[in-house]
């Protein structure tokens, strides 16, 4: 990896970690189920950016693109099903707040 590519990778890597931190923080702190999904999306965005920058820096951009297309397909399936589950929970309990879904407590 050349010096320019390494510094570009490091700069983008810094922001990947920041977006990842946002996602982790949101998933850990929020009590709203839709916000949990938004946190998961932020985590996926960070992973996507890391893959594309790594592919660009190492000269394997085609492999990175193929991997990202797979990632996006999995991401949209996970979000669609999770949104359906969240809507079902909302219908059953009348709330999206995890504090009110006491039946899930172990």
């Amino acid at each position: 990896m050349s010096k320019d590519a390494a510094s570009l990778f490091w700069l983008y890597n810094t922001f990947v970690i920041l977006v990842f931190l946002c996602g982790i923080y949101l998933v850990a702190v929020t009590k709203n189920l839709i916000k949990v999904l938004i946190g998961l999306e932020l985590l996926t965005k960070a992973a996507t950016l890391l893959i594309i920058v790594a592919g660009y820096s190492t000269g394997h951009i085609a492999t990175a693109q193929a991997l990202i297309i797979n990632l996006i397909v999995v991401e949209v399936v996970v979000i669609a099903v999770a949104a359906g589950v969240v809507l079902s929970i909302r219908k059953k309990y009348g709330s999206l707040n995890v504090k009110n879904i006491s039946n899930l407590k172990g």
Binding site: K45, I52, Y56, Q65, I69, I72
Partner: peptide
Amino acid sequence: FNAPLAAVFELSVCAGLI
């Protein structure tokens, strides 16, 4: 980063559908 195919997927699916 010269990844137009992934970019189009990201724009249409992530920014649109999701």
